[in-house]
Simulated assay, not measured.
Amino acid sequence: MSDLLPARMRALGSTLATLRGQAELTTRQAAARIGTSIATLNRIERAKRSATVAEVSAMLAIYGVVGPERKRIMANIEKLTAPWFEDDHQLRELLRPLADFESQASSIVNFSPANVPGLIQTPAYARAIISDVLTEHVEERVADRLARQQVLSKRAAPRYLAILDEAVLRRPVGGSHVIAQQIRSMIERAKQPHVDIRVIPFKYSQYASPGYFSVLGFTDAPTLVYVEHRGSSGFVDSPMGKRKLQDQAARLAKIALDSADSVKFLAMVAADHERG
């Protein structure tokens, strides 16, 4: 399967499929109303073919999409093959498709050198992290983040691996109580058969950290890689760029403590915070 499926194109296809479902139309019904073939509509929804402005405009009209949502979707059509990176003020433009991709993934690997990944944050920890960046819409962002976490609780949940630097655990985000509660929550998470949390202790920290990134694997689509940094975040589309971070994830997993030792390490650090 070709790796050359830009994230923007995949996000558009997924969005159009969701909107068609919300309009309660089958592909046959939608294709007939749009004036295209079922095969063409399927290829657009699966990002096997780029949609034209006219096609997307017709779909949105038939699906009853108007106002800001229509404007947002139409504005992205001419950028389907462009690199998808946003600055911090536009980060939410990435979080909606990221959540959608996470819900479709069969496996998710998060590496974080600074903070607990969003998929396993407690409400209090998420609030402390988001408040450090934003002064408004904090609770809305917290709600969005907690909603994303449902992917790890669904029936066909993806295999999830979080690789954390010890610095993530030592940094008292929100205060000692909040970080201790966060670490205890991760210990509980690690009891789930599809969840694996690994720690890289300081004594093994002589490695080149690429910053926060996620590798999303799919059963019927190419891998996606998402990177998040202060200033600019987005999806890596180039096969070479994706392969580099996939290889890095494999190396980091080898450096980290195994699952059992990581849980023991988490318990030790939680106790340190509780005493403090």
Results as ranks from 00 to 15, higher is better:
Val178Asn: 07
Gly234His: 02
Thr27Asp: 12
Gln192Gly: 11
Ala156Glu: 11
Ala82Phe: 10
Asp100Lys: 05
Tyr125Leu: 12
Gly64Phe: 13
Thr15Ser: 08
Ser205Glu: 04
Asp100Tyr: 05
Val225Tyr: 07
Asn110Leu: 04
Ala208Cys: 06
Met240Thr: 15
Thr40Ile: 02
Lys71Ile: 13
Gly174His: 02
Val151Ile: 14
Gln246His: 12
Pro239Met: 08
Ala208Asp: 14
Leu95Met: 15
Tyr226Ser: 00
Ala249Thr: 03
Leu5His: 13
Ser185Val: 01
Val66Leu: 10
Arg49Ser: 02
Phe101Tyr: 10
Gln181Ile: 03
Asp144Leu: 14
Ile38Phe: 03
Asn42Glu: 08
Ala105Val: 11
Leu152Asp: 09
Gly231Glu: 04
Thr27Tyr: 06
Arg170Asn: 02
Gln22Asp: 15
Pro6Trp: 00
Leu224Gln: 08
Asp272Glu: 15
Gly276Lys: 13
Ile44Leu: 04
Asp88Leu: 03
Arg155Glu: 01
Val269Leu: 13
Arg275Ile: 15
Gly13His: 01
Arg184Pro: 03
Ser259Trp: 05
Ile200Thr: 04
Pro158Asn: 09
Gln29Gly: 08
Gly118Trp: 10
Asp196Met: 12
Gly175Cys: 00
Gly35Phe: 05
Ser103Tyr: 03
Thr36Asn: 00
Leu146Pro: 01
Ala30Asp: 01
Glu166Gly: 05
Asn115Lys: 15
Ser107Cys: 09
Asp220Trp: 02
Ala167His: 07
Arg145Ala: 07
Ile44Thr: 00
Lys244Ile: 05
Phe213Ile: 10
Ala250Gln: 09
Glu166Leu: 09
Gln29Asp: 14
Ala128Pro: 03
Val173Phe: 06
Ala267Leu: 01
Ser214His: 10
Tyr63Met: 06
Gly231Ala: 09
Thr52Glu: 13
Ala39Gln: 06
Lys203Asp: 15
Glu45Tyr: 04
Ala157Gln: 03
Thr52Lys: 06
Arg33Cys: 08
Ala39Trp: 00
Gly13Arg: 00
Gly67Cys: 05
Asp144Ser: 08
Arg141Leu: 03
Thr40Gly: 01
Ile34His: 00
Gly13Pro: 02
Pro193Asn: 03
Thr18Leu: 14
Gln192Val: 11
Gln29Tyr: 11
Gln206Glu: 13
Met240Pro: 12
Ala82Ile: 04
Gln121Glu: 14
Arg171Leu: 04
